[in-house]
């Protein structure tokens, strides 16, 4: 293990971390903006819209992220029509191709998470809101969405970690993310493991941060669902 080569090239890895964080963060954000309305529509089985969203979700969950990225990056650019269209200045750039693909992918997974959370909202919560005289729009905005998002937190935390790890495929379309930096290090010094080990360590550290953040969020926003917790703790203590 030649640690000194990793240290000498720390800048390359720092840029890689920034690229990975950008791609992951932005695609999660855009994906979430797609998923919130899409998830609610899907849960409510709206005619016309729901089947379209079903198709979108099925398409992006049914194919591997790598294949999607290949199709968007190398596939679309094969068509003259695409290269001459207004979208080409965007699709020309590897960065935008990755961002679009990741956003749509994350959006599809998050749609399913939100749909599940919306569908399992206790009827009593909504009934209570209605009995207070809230309009259907207010019920959705003030009760359904906050309640569903809270319950979706643990699953969504998983999706965030998956997206982080999924973003490694960016390195195959010339983007220098964390894995890209690792590969370049390996190629430059003919190493087998050093670049990958460094990349693994960086991904693990970022994951650890994410896990801690989501644990904090869950503690804060799911406290009201955690009535059982003190009892369970006591019992554990007693058993010891």
């Amino acid at each position: 293990m030649r640690v000194e080569l990793v240290l000498e090239n720390w800048q390359m890895f720092a840029e890689g971390v920034w690229m990975t964080l950008q791609l992951t963060g932005l695609s999660l954000l855009i994906g979430f903006c797609i998923a919130l309305p899409a998830g609610i529509v899907r849960a409510r089985r709206v005619p016309v819209l729901s089947p379209i969203i079903n198709g979108y979700v099925y398409l992006f969950r049914g194919t591997p992220l790598l294949v999607q990225l290949y199709l968007v990056y190398y596939g679309l650019s094969q068509f003259e029509a695409v290269r001459e269209s207004f979208a080409w200045p965007v699709l020309r750039e590897a960065y935008w191709c990755a961002l679009i693909t990741f956003s749509l992918n994350s959006g599809a997974y998050a749609t399913e998470i939100i749909r599940g959370a919306v569908e399992t909202t206790p009827e009593g919560e909504l009934e209570g809101a209605r009995s207070l005289g809230l309009s259907p729009g207010q019920v959705t905005r003030l009760v359904l969405i906050p309640s569903a998002l809270r319950r979706a937190l643990p699953q969504y935390g998983n999706e965030v970690v998956f997206m982080l790890h999924g973003s490694v495929v960016a390195s195959i379309i010339t983007l220098q993310d964390i894995l890209g930096a690792g590969r370049t290090l390996n190629a430059r010094y003919y190493l087998a493991y050093e670049g990958f080990l460094t990349a693994a360590a960086l991904y693990m550290s970022i994951t650890l941060c994410l896990v801690l953040v989501f644990r904090g969020l869950e503690r804060k926003y799911l406290a009201h669902l955690d009535i059982q917790a003190p009892k369970a703790k006591k019992m554990k203590f007693a058993l010891r």
Partner: peptide, 18 residues
């Protein structure tokens, strides 16, 4: 510089104008 894993991918991006 844009770095590619294979030479074939570099050809693809040259013909695409990337």
């Amino acid at each position: 510089l844009k770095l590619y894993g294979t030479q074939d991918e570099a050809y693809l991006d040259l013909s695409a104008g990337r």
